[in-house]
Design a binder for these strands. Structure first.
Lengths: 348, 348
DNA sequence: ACACGCGATGTTGACGTCAACATCGACGGC
DNA sequence: GCCGTCGATGTTGACGTCAACATCGCGTGT
């Protein structure tokens, strides 16, 4: 009754054999019913179904996985759920995987240390997964000198191109260019940059693309300020930026840091967008309600999640890598944090 | 070499038998080495280890689960990763489970419909899990008329008490009282409330506790405004609140809605905390960088996650339910969004 | 009436692991 | 020198499922 035997030990649930006995059929017929095969007599099927629900039968996925040689499960290795982008991508991955009939096995990296990463990968090797999506920033991977189990399909999100794995990611370059050109088009002489941590490839690419865009337009490239994606780090860098009168436009590598910068600007009494224009990156839900509402680059996390799952499943089922990275386009969402520069700053 | 056989099908990895053959021992000895038993000769162990790494052996967790009758995995059923609290709790659960040697199986509910919830629970029954943590709001559960597989240990986070499952949650009542009394102590005549959706038990409790605190202090209870946890809904409700001159203090049921309210107040030109004081709930990382930085109630998500995992594992391993809900204390974090009421409003 | 086909159902064995039991050899005590 | 013991290793079988093959009975065509 309670799922325990007289000794108080956990008892296994009913198996096909139990259902078969109760329904007066063979185990194989139960299997056929459980798997929706249609070559079973209707009356028999009903009898089996009745026995199943009466016994509370549920298929043993371990036995099924062992027999079939596949788990129908994919591992997702994440570093932290603090970052908005990671969380959103994970959400999209989970949804896409579920729709495709795969379960999600979440493998957290417990801290930043190299051994924690190595540990996570070791655990991963022992998990019941058919493939892996790596959501941690790739430099961390490098440092850990990670060796994944051979023959385990892998897809990487947010990575450099020098891995031998398929890559799916937002088109960071295009997004950063969009942000930078938006500010330039408004008439700003140049655009400052508050970047993400050097350990992130995404941050790297946004910074590079911002710089290249400035160069393409023949503008001066101001020094870069680095944060670590958090609002706190945006605030710290923001205090320095806010103190510089010549700063009229800033492209911030994510919305959370932009929030910190906004606070620093408010504290200093510099008007946004009156004196300084700001563009973020991500379009987190809150960005529309920052003060002022933030102009930002919207990432299409749903597509990133779906495409990475699709690529992984293809690899699992067909054994095919395809090596050209998949880049998902971003787009600019114009709100109130950007405007033309103040007249006094028009010359640069 | 590539993990496929000549027909292009996925080939299973090497098994214990393969390792045993290469090392010239029996499968059982390989098993002993793999499980760290110490009754194996050092030289033999080395030989087995060498064979393992040369073949790229990794234990088949399906076979192990089948043999041992346990998966060492817990399912977490979540509705959405958009809400800050859910995400943070999931993170803490994943960490705690990993430390305890359990894997995490993420089971998303694809949409709000009843069938989606039922679907998710059905899927759950077929997952390779020893137990389940339910992270969705409990009213949704109710509506779905959910029947969980019998004998599967369950722990619920954020739920009413009328389930026969162990419950772990933040002490919503205590947190809401803290918030309300903080504002009262500053001298506000009464405190308005911007609550969460009626479908959430957490929102319910925060509202009830706010009301009770007001009554306990002999204050008037203003009408409640409801949001749905999002900044957008906070903004909508906030526009109404901002229009009322008599509002000097608002307790908002989460930080995201507080952000929306802040925006509405700014748009209307009402100073925070000069004219209106605001307290949020959650203490999301960004709250410290809102404008102004938000006074809020900090939830201890780490403890909630850890305690729910501990409770579940105890249930799994010992078969013991313990029915008193576990309440994790919250605490007030005082920042700049609260101050005494303006002199003009002192009388109420 | 008989062979044949076909649909419904049953039987067998293998997936990889590990507990329980069996075996074997070395060493110490008397 | 014989027996008992203990440590290292091997052998067997069972966990639950499902593909492959076997069987059985009924209807159809000639």
């Amino acid at each position: 009754m309670t799922g325990e035997d007289s000794a108080g030990r956990r008892r296994r649930g009913p198996s096909m054999a139990d259902v078969a006995r109760m329904a007066g059929v063979s185990g194989q017929t139960v299997s056929r019913v459980a798997n929706g095969r249609n070559n079973v007599d209707a009356a028999t099927r009903d009898r089996v179904r009745a026995a199943m629900s009466q016994l509370g039968y549920r298929p043993n996925s371990a036995a099924r996985a062992l027999r079939n040689g596949e788990y129908r499960s994919i591992g997702v290795i994440v570093f932290e759920l603090h970052s908005f982008g990671t969380t959103r991508t994970l959400d999209a991955i989970a949804t896409a995987a579920t729709i495709s009939g795969y379960a999600i096995n979440l493998v957290p990296v417990l801290d930043v240390s190299q051994s924690a990463v190595t540990n996570a990968f070791t655990r991963l090797g022992e998990q019941a997964v058919d493939g892996v999506i790596i959501l941690i920033e790739a430099h961390t991977l490098d440092e850990a000198g990670v060796r994944l189990p051979d023959g385990l399909p892998v897809v990487v999100v947010d990575s450099s191109a020098h891995y031998d794995f398929p890559i799916v990611d937002t088109d960071q370059r295009q997004g950063a260019r969009l942000a930078t050109e938006h500010l330039l088009n408004l008439g700003h002489a140049t655009v400052w940059h508050l970047g993400g941590p050097p350990t992130s490839f995404a941050a790297d690419r946004r910074r590079q693309s911002w710089e290249q865009t400035l160069i393409d337009h023949g503008r001066e490239v101001p020094p870069v300020y680095d944060g670590d994606w958090t609002a706190g780090s945006g605030y710290e860098a923001g205090r320095q930026l806010a103190a510089k009168a010549e700063v009229t436009a800033v492209f911030v590598a994510n919305d959370q840091m932009a929030l910190g910068l906004l606070r620093a600007l408010h504290e200093r009494g510099r008007a946004v967008p009156g004196e300084v224009s700001i563009v973020g990156f991500d379009d987190m839900e809150e960005a529309a309600h920052f003060w002022p509402p933030l102009t930002t680059i919207r990432q299409n996390f749903v597509d990133v999640g779906r495409l990475s799952v699709d690529a992984l499943i293809q690899e699992i089922q067909a054994g095919e890598h395809h090596h050209e990275p998949v880049a998902v386009a971003a787009k600019l969402v114009h709100r109130s944090s950007t405007a033309p520069p103040p007249p006094s700053a028009s010359g640069g």
